[in-house]
Amino acid sequence: MTLLSVQNLGVQTPAGRALVADLSFDLAAGQRLGLIGESGSGKSVTSLAVTGLLGSGLVASGSVLLDGVQVVGASERRLVPLRGRVASVVFQEPLTALDPLMRIGRQLAEPITRHRGLRGSALHAAVADALDEVSLDEARISRAYPHEISGGQRQRAAIAIALASRPQLLIADEPTTALDVTVQAQVLRLLDDLIDARGMALLFISHDLAVVSAMTPDVIVMSSGVAVERGSIERVLSKPQHPYTAELVRSARALDDMLGQR
C-alpha cells in the first residue's frame, strides 16, 4: 500500500477561491518528493491538507489516503492516530511551532510518552537520545525554554520532536528557511542523515531549488495551486517544460551565477 496517496486534491477558501486544484501524487514508504513553488502556490496548504490541519474555513475535496486512512473530511478522532505515528511535520518557524512556556525536554517527552509509552528513567534516556540524535547538548537544551536557545537549536529541537514518535513520513515545510546559511547547511545534512538512517519517506516543501536538489531526487513544481510540472530534479533543471518552471530555473541559475563558479 502506498504510504501517502493524494488524488485530485482541491482546497478552497470560504469565498470559493481555489488554493489547490486537482493535485495528485503518490509517495511510497522510504520515498522522497519535493514540492516547490512560490508563495501562494499552494505548497504549504497541501501539507496542511495532507495532515488534516487545514485552518478555519478551508475546505478540502478529493482524496488523501494516509496509510490507507481517508484524511479529507475525516473527524479529528480519526486523524489523531495518524499524526506522529504515520506523519509528522516540521514547520518553517520553530519559534511558533514550539510552546514558549514549556521546557524543550518536556515538549520532547510528550510525543515519546504518547507514542512509545515510556515513563521515568526510560523516558529520560529516550529524551537524551533524541536530543543527541540532532546534535543538541542534552544537559543544557533539555532544561531550556525556546527563547533561550538559537534559531538553529530550536529547529533541531523541532526536528527531534517530530521524529520522536517514529513517523513513517516526515513533512518538512521550509524547514531551513528561517535559518542562517551555515546553520541551514548543518540542519539539511542532519535531516538527510536521519531520514536515510530511519528509511522514512520525505515530503520536502521549499521555494529554494538549490535546497530541494540537495534533498529529493524528484519534484513537483506548483504554481497558483496547480502542479505545472513533475519529474526528476535533473530533468527539471536541465529541460524545464512549463514556462513557470523555466522562469524559476532561470532565476535560481541567475542567483547561483552571481556567486561565480565553484
Partner: peptide, 13 residues
C-alpha cells in the same frame, strides 16, 4: 570562507 561554502548551490547542468 565557511559562509561562502555553506550557500546551497544548484547542481551543474
Amino acid at each position: 570562507r565557511r559562509l561562502v561554502a555553506a550557500v546551497p548551490r544548484l547542481p551543474h547542468p
